[in-house]
């Protein structure tokens, strides 16, 4: 039983590690969703989401998106770092959301 447990754990942790390594390339993301901001050249056409759009999409996954006016800029910086780790958000997501909250409060 102990061997079986170790085997299952090894398989699952190996899969996790493989995915982590596979995803750690520097390939630029190319999104094809609704455009709110367009950047890039003729070769590398990239459509990026705004902080407001990410605020609506990301925060609502767990709780109602917060009102920007409820905290000041300093507080939003602290909350953003906390939420980046708690909800496991990408750096781009939290950076844009934080910028939006600070600009809209």
């Amino acid at each position: 039983m102990k061997t079986t447990t170790n085997f299952k754990a090894a398989i699952i942790l190996s899969v996790m590690a493989s995915i982590m390594v596979a995803c750690s390339s520097n390939k630029k993301p190319i999104a094809t969703d609704t455009a709110t901001e367009v950047a890039g050249s003729e070769v590398d056409f990239k459509i990026e989401k705004s902080g407001a759009q990410l605020w609506g999409e990301v925060c609502n996954r767990c709780h109602i998106a917060p009102s920007p006016a409820d905290y000041n800029d300093t507080d939003w910086e602290t909350i953003s770092l906390h939420m980046r780790v708690r909800a496991n958000l990408t750096e781009e997501e939290i950076t844009k959301i934080e910028s939006f909250l600070k600009s809209a409060n």
Partner: peptide
């Protein structure tokens, strides 16, 4: 250890 990746639309996050 935890983190997240943007896969160019889809996203992936991990924690070990």
């Amino acid at each position: 250890l935890r983190g997240a990746f943007d896969l160019g639309g889809p996203k992936l996050n991990y924690a070990v």
